[in-house]
């Protein structure tokens, strides 16, 4: 099972890319845990998570080839 992750704003600086792929992730809690292991600085940013462009607020099941987007808040104007 393969998940594609897109990152936005200052998150791309932390992972040093705008996207990455992870294998064998079953749900969004597992995904966050894995991301925090790989990139500990991500834990400091309160990002919003969307699966296939739909924002989710609770732990959600992931399926093969899902696209998960991580959107951080920013406030510049």
């Amino acid at each position: 099972m393969k998940i594609k992750i897109l990152v936005f704003g200052q998150l791309s600086e932390i992972i040093n890319a705008s996207e990455l792929e992870l294998l064998a992730i079953n749900n969004t809690d597992e995904l966050n845990k894995k991301l925090f292991e790989l990139y500990p600085k991500l834990e400091d940013i309160k990002y919003t998570l969307a699966i296939n462009k739909k924002i989710i607020h609770e732990n959600t099941q992931l399926y093969h080839e899902d696209i998960v987007a991580l959107l951080p808040p920013f406030s510049g104007g």
């Binding site: 400091d44 309160k46 808040p73 920013f74 406030s75 510049g76």
Partner: peptide
């Protein structure tokens, strides 16, 4: 969209970034 405000220690503004 963003239920919790970011920690200002990690939030960056246009003045800095």
């Amino acid at each position: 969209l963003f239920p919790e405000p970011p920690n200002p220690l990690n939030a960056i503004s246009c003045n800095e970034a």
